[in-house]
Design a protein around this nucleic acid. Sequence first.
DNA 1: CGTAAGATGAAG
DNA 2: TTCATCTTACGG
Length: 190
Amino acid sequence: MTPTSSPDLSNAPIAAPALLGWKLLHQTEAGLTSGYIVETEAYLPDDPASHAFRGPGKANAPLFAEAGTIYVYFTYGKHYCVNLATGPAGNGQGVLIRALEPVEGIGLMQRRRGQERLEQLCSGPAKLVQAMAITKDLSGQPLAHGQLWLEPGFVPDAIRRTPRIGISQATDKLWRFVIAGNRFASKPVA
DNA sequence: CGTAAGATGAAG
DNA sequence: TTCATCTTACGG
């Protein structure tokens, strides 16, 4: 099976595993950084753990935009995380990008993170945002070549599903997707 | 208005 | 296990 030219973002639980293996790229003045997506989570409109659950607000509006819109949120007083909106416009759902396998701009990412080990560079939703220097300015914008965009990578041979990390509601749903055995995940799974 | 809790990470 | 440190949502 070969990668298609764009991932299926029609529905979060489909998009989340479909995004695994895709390369996420970010271009800044400092340089290009990129990595293969190795861990994602799906969030749905009627999902109490989702930022979209209580309807559109100031910060979460991009989740209700058309598929492929970038949603960057701030949390815990110091961290940013990045999502891609999925589903039709008006439907609040998306996929949280939780970990990357570093590919390009590794030196730049190491400097931004103050961290040498590749396994710790992008092994968490806020880590990869820091490594790639993704900012809230991108929230609400579409994926765009030369800014933040996706390119085909590889097709994972095995994907594991687990409960999502860091939530207190809907913990029974298996909406976290990880490439089996990948050592760049936030919490690797066999 | 005041306040609590949050899709986290790093240090102790 | 604790704490940093800010935004938003919700209660009074």
